[in-house]
């Protein structure tokens, strides 16, 4: 098969246009797309009504909690949780109004609950030097269970949230 000069011109033109388009995409966004595809997505937690998903994204040390609407696929805003990484062990109440998650404050791991409706952050005050590992808020947001580690031995404690946050009604 022979290529005539017109076809040669078209091939060169196509190559130059492709090169131009590729160079228009900034290196940083290429890198961020690549980073998103390669990012770990872990620690899934569904809201009680099954409409929202909390998860942890990002590489070691920078893991950040995110909430996604499963209906629209969009990332929902969080007012207080863009820092204090690494985040771990997210859990959601029935509607997803409350997000409980473990964050880093200084050299301590702390359990916090973000009230997405009122935009408030509640810290779970823990006595002693205990290190929270896992946490789960109950669907109606009346209790929270926290797993700690003391030496190599894990243990779980349950806390009453009534009087701190409003309960949710399961629909």
């Amino acid at each position: 098969m022979t290529i005539n000069s017109k076809q040669k011109q078209n091939i060169i033109l196509f190559f130059l246009i492709s090169l131009g388009i590729a160079s228009c995409i900034p290196y940083s966004s290429q890198r961020s797309i690549q980073a998103f595809l390669q990012e770990n997505k872990q620690d899934p937690a569904l809201s009680g009504n099954g409409e929202k998903l909390a998860l942890i994204i990002g590489q070691s040390g920078q893991q950040t909690v995110q909430i996604r609407s499963l209906k629209s696929g969009t990332v929902l805003p969080l007012r207080h949780l863009s820092r204090h990484q690494p985040h771990s062990s997210p859990s959601l109440s029935w509607s997803g109004r409350y997000l409980a998650v473990i964050i880093q404050r200084g050299n301590r791991r702390t359990v916090v609950i973000e009230d997405r409706l009122k935009g408030r952050l509640h810290s779970i005050v823990l006595s002693g030097n205990r290190n929270p590992i896992n946490t789960e808020i109950s669907p109606e947001a009346r209790r929270i269970a926290i797993q700690f580690s003391q030496g190599n031995k894990p243990f779980v404690e349950v806390f009453d949230l009534s009087g701190i946050i409003e309960p949710e009604f399961l629909k």
Binding site: I133, N134, T135, E136, I137, S138, P139, E140, R143, I144, A145, I146, Q147, K153, P154, F155, V156, E157, V158, L170
Partner: peptide, 15 residues
Amino acid sequence: LRGYQNGHKKPSLSK
């Protein structure tokens, strides 16, 4: 929960 010597982990709460 403290009555169990080997400790509890990975809690999950329902109502």
